[in-house]
Write a protein that binds this DNA or RNA. Structure first.
Lengths: 206, 206
DNA sequence: GGGCTTTTGTGAAATCTTTCACAAATGTAG
DNA sequence: CTACATTTGTGAAAGATTTCACAAAAGCCC
């Protein structure tokens, strides 16, 4: 498949959210103009984004909300569930585990790890926190699609390496470090410091 | 000042992190090549990014780590402290409050709000959680530079509107919604669902 | 069915970002 | 002091993304 820009994928994901809203409100049809208005972009952008994957609209009418929801779910790979391992049972991990949208969208947390002896063995939303040293033995014969790394900065790369060795191909990283992984592994890093500094830059340069 | 791309600002923020690492290690001088290697980019990119703001290096030698750290702090507006109000005292808010990098980089949380009567009045890291209905009276004569919105999705826009009315010009939003604000207010949204879906897209289309 | 209105899908143009490539500095070694 | 090795700073080229603009499709009304 032709390379699609990350910005495009992010917008598709946004469109999907809006379309789900529309669906709940009982709206059956939407124009690229309406979708763009909801998402702060332009109708041409919406049409171009969709056009990379096919043509889903009816000229003169717009898009069937229901149909477009289906198509976008397919494009984004949301037609299945993903098994997620969370490594790190601190505050952020705990917030994530409770986040409903996670399960709602098909991301199921199947294991939680931590190095802290005080946490290991405790129950957490129906799961037992396991010792991080047992990552390999615990995950060897469990399929895990995505690792969420919520460890302190200094252990994140080590954890990432071990996940890669286990064959995990996708990592969501909340540790404030730049992870190095092979080309066939995809990493998304959420870095709070970066966001704050973008704000501080914007506040300064006006 | 000429418009600088967001991607450039994010990289500058990354460079700063790496330079601080180098500084700790006692490294005094760094080339664009070395900085690029650490950050997964190219030396030309590093030089171009910096060139928007001046020329900080010595040909044949590279950059003084210490000097470049100073310059980048200045460019990113990190030479001061920012007063932050946190609206929402749930799990994510709690994780953020404890995040050290926050204070370390000059972002000081000066107030926390929630609507939940069970939380209001409780102490939180040296601060008392205030009733969100009192946002206006509490912040009227406190300077607040940045609002962090950590409320449920359905109240986020309302909170944002009230922050804007209070004259706040920067918002960091963790609610999974697209906020609408006037042009002179800058919003960064951290949307977990979006990150997950980018991963799922990447896993699907390989 | 013909004319009118709406809205898509998409090449082409415009704009933005990254990469290239090289002259100009700067230090070093002999 | 000259030749040499580095490495910056930056126009120009290449590449990527967004916007424009319009023909083509589809429904609607008379």
């Amino acid at each position: 498949m032709r390379k699609i820009a990350e910005s495009t994928v992010r917008r598709l994901s946004l469109y999907l959210r809006f379309l789900e809203e529309f669906e709940e409100q009982g709206i059956e049809t939407v124009s690229s103009e309406a979708l763009a208005a909801r998402g702060g972009t332009t109708s041409a952008q919406v049409r171009k984004d969709l056009s990379f994957f096919g043509s889903f609209g009816k000229r003169g009418l717009g898009y069937s909300v229901q149909e477009l929801v289906q198509k976008l779910r397919g494009i984004l790979g949301l037609g299945r569930t993903y098994r997620v391992a969370m490594i790190g049972a601190g505050k952020i991990g705990s917030a994530l585990v409770q986040y409903r949208g996670f399960k709602q969208r098909g991301f199921e947390i199947v294991a939680i790890f931590d190095t802290d002896a005080a946490k290991v063995g405790r129950g957490w939303n129906g799961l037992t926190v396991q010792d991080a040293r047992e990552l390999e033995s615990a995950l060897r014969d469990q399929r895990v699609d995505i690792a969420v790394i919520v460890t302190p900065a200094d252990s994140a790369q080590n954890v990432a390496d071990r996940c890669v060795a286990l064959g995990i191909k996708a990592v969501l990283n909340f540790a404030p470090v730049q992870l190095t992984v092979p080309d066939d592994v995809v990493v998304k890093t959420v870095n709070l410091a970066l966001e704050l500094e973008t704000l501080s830059y914007a506040l300064t340069n006006r």
